[in-house]
């Protein structure tokens, strides 16, 4: 379904192994007159691109669309690697949840698979949303559940070979943060009305001369919170990948096979750490968003 439109499969050099591909990139960057320790090949691997790299099996060049010029802004809606990954994550998430939901159609007692999903859903519901927002939070549950599982699956998807982490792209996390920002503001405005909400941002009972400063601080705070969300998730997800690539790259920089056991050992450790970080970051993003919505909905605190 997703790959239906992709017809231009260009076969790569079939003989190359994926490790070979990394070594090629290192040698290529070295031959460009840069030092062997250049990190450009790492950046190429974690950065977004317009091709899906399945070397040694080939590459898929994603379709380009003409940029749209809107109000002086150039918007390039061309598909990128991370957009495709997002869609794959979306489909996986949809299928997983569909299977889990179908278990409840048969009986109120969930199956093994549904129980595992249910544990996370109950965790998001009771420990994150209701804990941070209260009973009012129930109407935000679909948003928070989607957010949590979307980030979790995206983070974990980076662990799959040939896949990459969509949340390791600052544009993706920025988009999630913008949505979070909108949800926070709209929830506050729905609760207190437009005027009431912005008036309530400044805590009552402070001296009049401080109010201008407080207004600036609070309004800045509205934007820094989602900005922090965005950068935190992006940096956490990309950092692990860069460390893993760096450890693997050590083998080629030293140019000896004897460094491999150390590199692989550390990379494996970081991989396991990534599993932990992926889960924790999904929790933190959802938890903080819920907390901010809770603060917007309960201004009295």
């Amino acid at each position: 379904m997703i790959f239906g439109f992709i017809t231009n499969l260009i076969a790569g050099t079939m003989a190359n192994g994926s490790v070979r591909a990394v070594s090629d990139t290192v040698h290529a960057s070295a031959s460009h007159g840069e030092s062997g320790s250049s990190g450009n090949w790492i950046i190429e691997h974690v950065a977004d691109s317009h091709t899906l790299d399945f070397s040694p099996f080939g590459k898929i060049v994603l379709p380009h669309f003409a940029p749209i010029h809107l109000a002086g802004l150039t918007i390039n809606m061309s598909l990128t690697k991370h957009v495709v990954m997002l869609w794959i994550v979306g489909v996986i998430l949809f299928v997983v949840m569909k299977i889990a939901a179908s278990s409840y159609k048969r009986s109120l007692i969930p199956g093994k698979f549904a129980s595992a999903v249910e544990m996370l859903i109950i965790f998001v519901r009771d420990e994150i949303v209701i804990a941070a927002i209260g009973e009012k939070g129930r109407k935000f549950l679909p948003y928070f559940l989607t957010l949590f599982f979307f980030i979790l699956f995206s983070n974990l998807f980076g662990m799959v070979p040939y896949a990459s982490t969509p949340t390791g792209n600052i544009n993706v996390t920025a988009s999630l943060a913008i949505i979070a920002f909108l949800v926070i503001q709209i929830s506050g405005i729905m609760q207190y009305g437009l005027g009431g909400y912005f008036k309530g941002l400044v805590p009552p009972g402070i001296p009049a001369f401080v109010i201008p400063v407080m207004v600036i601080v609070e309004v800045l705070g509205l934007f820094t919170k989602p900005f922090a969300l965005c950068v935190r998730l992006f940096a956490n997800m990309i950092a692990g990948h860069i460390v893993i690539f760096s450890l693997i790259g050590l083998i080629f920089i030293f140019g000896t096979i004897f460094i491999a056991p150390i590199s692989i050992g550390f990379a494996l450790f970081i991989d396991l750490l990534e599993l932990l970080v992926a889960t924790i970051q999904a929790y933190i993003f959802t938890m903080l968003t819920a907390l901010f919505v809770g603060m917007a909905v309960h201004q009295e605190h």
């Binding site: 957009v83 979306g90 949809f94 544009n171 993706v172």
Partner: peptide, 24 residues
């Protein structure tokens, strides 16, 4: 890359609507 931002928003919104109806 505003394109990716918009694609993410579209994907997320679509996913939210679909999952809300079929799963949540």
């Amino acid at each position: 890359n505003p394109g990716v931002i918009i694609w993410t928003a579209i994907t997320f919104g679509l996913l939210l609507v679909l999952l809300r109806a079929t799963a949540w």
